[in-house]
Design a protein around this nucleic acid. Structure first.
Lengths: 195, 195
DNA sequence: GTCTATAATCTGATAGAC
DNA sequence: GTCTATCAGATTATAGAC
């Protein structure tokens, strides 16, 4: 049954990225060989270089796509609500979007050190841009008297760490549904920034 | 000046662990070779095997020592205070103890997947025991009416993620001192679990 | 577009000299 | 206690056949 050769550039590229994502997340970037990725896709190692100039570029593409997708999805979601409404939207969005992509999120936190300085700066810039979205909500709420936050930058980092941390323990089919987790986290965040 | 040979078993062991910790944290366990570790200590690769049976045992020792130290330090710190006092003590302890050991903390979160199942279970058990310390504080406070927490397990995970996240952005000599960071995080935690 | 073969190098770990 | 030499195999990436 195994196909030995052929022309499949349109589906092979995405399949390589999908398998690389799985393997990098499971074993770590450095621990995964190009041969392993090729084998998971059903190729020989040499064929991978038709789709990526090298191993690091493969990682960079995965991280870049994730950050672009995250920011684009947020831009679509955000509205002109009150500060409290905007914060609730952010909290629920962050838990849900990242919860659906645990591998990409894990890579984005753990494998940045394997990027070249230039590529690292690109991902870092996107991460900062996303964090600024939350910080702006907190600043607006603080100015409007809706929140009492001693330091908006610290609150931003604290909230994002808390929300992203859901990925480390949440398991589909466990004691709580995603919706319940969202509710409980929103309750804690809301109180944490209150007066 | 370079020493070529000699007998230094009492200091070589700790130096190997210290250099391995630095290198594993910086580049990742899989990306660091035994030769790199040996070079950092000033040894040849073969000499490392006088001090560790293999590379994984070296990682396990680092993680085990860190978890043992964390739990021992907490046992010494904890007192018979009120729930609110106990929570404040935990928050400040966690930020300070982990803040002083960023490399060990990073390893403890990122390199667990490189342990054998048996060694993984040991570290995981210690981590859970530590988390239970916080959960018990939350449960006691909830029972005493000092806290209003919809789910003590979720609140435990949320608080620990939030506190540990300080390590991802805090830099000595930056805008805020460690003490100020502790104050602000304690303020947020206190409100998050309040009624 | 994919394969096979290969270059040049590195890997973890061991044996034995000193 | 440390070094040198070595084993057996893996690594990224490229060249050229098909």
């Amino acid at each position: 049954m195994a196909r030995k050769t052929g022309s499949h550039s349109e589906i092979t590229g995405p399949r390589i990225r999908a398998e690389a994502m799985k393997l990098f997340a499971r074993h770590g970037f450095a621990a995964v060989s190009m041969r392993q990725i090729a084998a998971a896709v059903g190729l020989q190692a040499g064929a991978l270089y038709l789709y990526t100039p090298d191993k690091e570029a493969l990682l960079f593409d995965l991280l870049k796509d994730h950050m672009d997708g995250l920011i684009a999805a947020w831009q679509e979601k955000r509205g002109g609500e009150s500060p409290v409404g905007a914060l609730e939207t952010f909290v629920r969005f962050h838990i849900r979007y990242n919860g659906e992509r645990p591998e990409a999120v894990f890579l984005s936190y753990m494998e940045l050190r394997n990027l070249s300085p230039e590529n690292f700066a690109v991902i870092e810039g996107l991460r900062r841009a996303y964090e600024t979205e939350l910080e702006n909500i907190l600043k607006a709420g603080q100015a409007a008297g809706a929140f009492l936050v001693p330091d908006t930058k610290l609150a931003t980092m604290a909230i994002i760490a808390m929300l992203t941390g859901v990925n480390t323990w949440f398991r589909e089919g466990g004691r709580l549904s995603r919706a319940t987790v969202e509710d409980i986290y929103w309750d804690m965040v809301r109180k944490a920034v209150s007066g």
